[in-house]
Design a protein around this nucleic acid. Structure first.
Length: 276
DNA sequence: ATGCCTTGTTCTACAAGA
């Protein structure tokens, strides 16, 4: 089943939670939604273990992969040519949490012939929202700050930042603002840093550009709920940020929650953004 | 607040997720 779409450029991002285990879900998603570019996080394999053959067979010949054994891992798969592949080791932990590439756009697109895409996986941050007692939380905050600094320096091309940023910034980005204020992903220190970082870059929260602040919007639902859809205790942890040059160009977003219902699903649903 | 579940590996126990 192949669905055509009218967007000039379609970007998607998905924390796949093991790309090898769910490669058939990836190719199904590519086939059904036809993004030009798909950013993946938590691929959980080395570059040489990445299921490139199946992705190529799905019509996505271009890949930028930053892998490591068992943990993390980020990738960009594309049907448009990629160049200038870069892998930043934020916080010098040796983690494969970032990969970037320049996407060559079809000539039909006006104003620009390339866009820079970053696929990011921000650390979850552990349980305790305290930088003194919890090194993982400290790492998370330093990661976001460093991300802001490093991406500032790479602003020559129109830029899209996509990925699992592991922070739900707004009240309606979580199922209960009050109950999650002290839960890592929605604490004020995180959400304030998140917003300050995005604003310093001058980027748009593209999902919220198209979905009113008053509306609940989630991309992740815990595996631990007996019935994720019925309890619907979600959080918006996955994001697409669009630079000023392109901020007005987005025409719509969707969270493909169907994928959360698939057998052996990832705990994250894909996010799709269309650009005119 | 925790973790009702899930991942990959050091594989039947563990660390990590968020």
């Amino acid at each position: 089943m192949t669905k055509a779409h009218s967007a000039a450029f379609r970007l998607a991002t998905w924390n796949i939670n093991s790309v090898r285990l769910r490669i058939e879900q990836v190719t199904r998603f590519l086939d059904e939604h036809q993004p030009d570019v798909l950013c993946l996080q938590e691929t959980k394999c080395r570059e040489e273990e990445f299921p490139a053959k199946a992705i190529r067979a799905a019509g996505y010949e271009h890949m930028a992969i930053h892998g490591q054994k068992a943990y993390h891992g980020s990738a960009i798969v594309s049907r448009l040519p990629l160049s200038d592949i870069d892998r930043v080791d934020f916080c010098a932990m040796g983690d494969a949490r970032h990969v970037a590439a320049t996407v060559a756009l079809p000539k039909a697109l006006s104003n620009a012939d390339a866009v820079r895409v970053h696929s990011l996986y921000v650390p979850a941050g552990g349980d305790e929202p305290d930088v003194v007692t919890n090194p993982k939380f400290d790492h998370k905050l330093r990661f976001v700050a460093e991300m802001g600094d490093k991406l500032q320096a790479d602003a020559s091309l129109p830029t899209l930042i996509a990925g699992d940023l592991n922070i739900a910034p707004y009240e309606e980005d979580v199922w209960s603002h009050k109950q999650l204020l002290k839960v890592v992903s929605h604490t004020p220190v995180e959400t304030e840093l998140f917003e300050a970082t995005r604003e310093a870059l001058g980027y748009t929260d593209t999902m919220r550009r198209h979905v009113a602040m008053e509306e609940k919007l989630y991309t992740w639902w815990s595996y631990r709920a007996k019935d994720w859809a019925a309890s619907n205790r979600g959080r918006r942890l996955d994001h697409v940020w669009t630079c000023q040059k392109w901020s007005e160009r987005s025409t719509g977003i969707s969270v493909y929650t169907d994928a959360r219902s698939w057998t052996k699903a990832s705990d994250h649903a894909p996010v799709i953004v269309d650009y005119a």
